[in-house]
């Protein structure tokens, strides 16, 4: 969703917060929240890609 600049990313962020392992990804979550709330979607996407990479989750290409 951040990849296409979707305004609903803000809502999904709330759901994502529940799923995140705060101890492991607390910094990334804070960073992601800041970017999405500021509508800096490209930067948000970079954070998601880094987290996905650590969790070995494949993402669609941009």
């Amino acid at each position: 969703m951040p990849g296409e600049g979707n305004a609903e990313s803000v809502d999904v962020l709330e759901e994502l917060r529940i799923c995140f392992n705060i101890e492991r990804f607390g910094d990334q979550l804070a960073e992601l929240t800041r970017y999405i709330e500021n509508f800096d979607f490209d930067d948000a996407r970079d954070v998601i890609e880094r987290v996905a990479d650590k969790l070995s989750i494949p993402l669609d290409k941009r």
Binding site: E4, G5, N6, A7, E8, F39, D40, F41, D42
Partner: peptide, 9 residues
């Protein structure tokens, strides 16, 4: 709704 913050986006 999709958003962009500059012309290139």
């Amino acid at each position: 709704v999709v958003l962009a913050k500059n012309g290139n986006q």
